[in-house]
Design a protein around this nucleic acid. Structure first.
Lengths: 128, 128
DNA sequence: TCCACAATTGACTTTTACGTAAATATCGTT
DNA sequence: AACGATATTTACGTAAAAGTCAATTGTGGA
């Protein structure tokens, strides 16, 4: 595995702009190392970026994505903090399960539409 | 089933503002009937609103939701139009399947986090 | 009939998530 | 040392999706 990626390599791989990546850094989502001023992205940074983009596809805001990526870090050492984190994790899971349900419903409706289209097409085929 | 709902009934039921509902109307997503100037929402309007909010939870833009709700209407009568619609439907389905995959992955990672929290908590329990 | 109150309309504002432009810096060539 | 290609920083701009505010306008009840 490569040690570092440049910013443009990542923009090409994920089809996003440099502005976007720098914006995520400003927002504290990602923290590449530097050689002088230029950013160097480790494989872990690249992986984090993948997770950020995955969150975006699911319609999470930057703030929500931030909450999620914070969870990917080491669990805290204090019991109260741990319980709090577990509560947050459960909230996110509930949110995701709702989304999954929404998706199943929408997929079901689109399936129905597709079938009615096929039917309609068959009718037309008969009549022409 | 009731014949009509007022705008405030819907804002309360779905916990959104009147501004939001009117905005959706301005955008052509919904088209309540009027008595004088006041809007009256039929059950079908209410159902449509539900679908719109479902789309929002999934992170679709208003434009994308518009595309979807248009599909819920009668399928077109012309074969070319039908095929085009089926193509669009398939695109949306592919999009939803990707989201579902993203959700499964994220859920899996959150499960792992949860477990590591439980582990950590057990360790603390032993040590204190 | 008149009043209180709900609903509407229109204009302006806010927030989010970047886009864009200008000036400056770095780095490997030539 | 100059140059072209990339990067960075700073600052302002913008589109989408509402929120907010003010001025009207209906309208159902006492």
């Amino acid at each position: 595995m490569r040690e570092f990626y440049t910013i443009t390599e990542l923009t090409r791989e994920f089809d996003i702009s440099t502005r976007t990546i720098r914006f995520y850094e400003d927002e504290g989502l990602i923290r590449p190392v530097r050689r002088g001023r230029t950013r160097l992205f480790r494989p872990s940074d690249r992986h984090l970026l993948k997770q950020i983009l995955r969150g975006k596809r699911l319609g999470f805001s930057i703030a929500e994505i931030n909450e999620i990526v914070q969870m990917y870090k080491e669990p805290p050492g204090e019991a109260g903090q741990l319980r709090l984190m577990m509560k947050r994790v459960e909230e996110k899971r509930a949110n995701l399960r709702q989304k999954r349900k929404d998706i199943e419903e929408t997929l079901g409706e689109l399936d129905a539409i597709d079938e009615s289209c096929i039917e309609r097409l068959a009718e037309l085929g008969v009549n022409t």
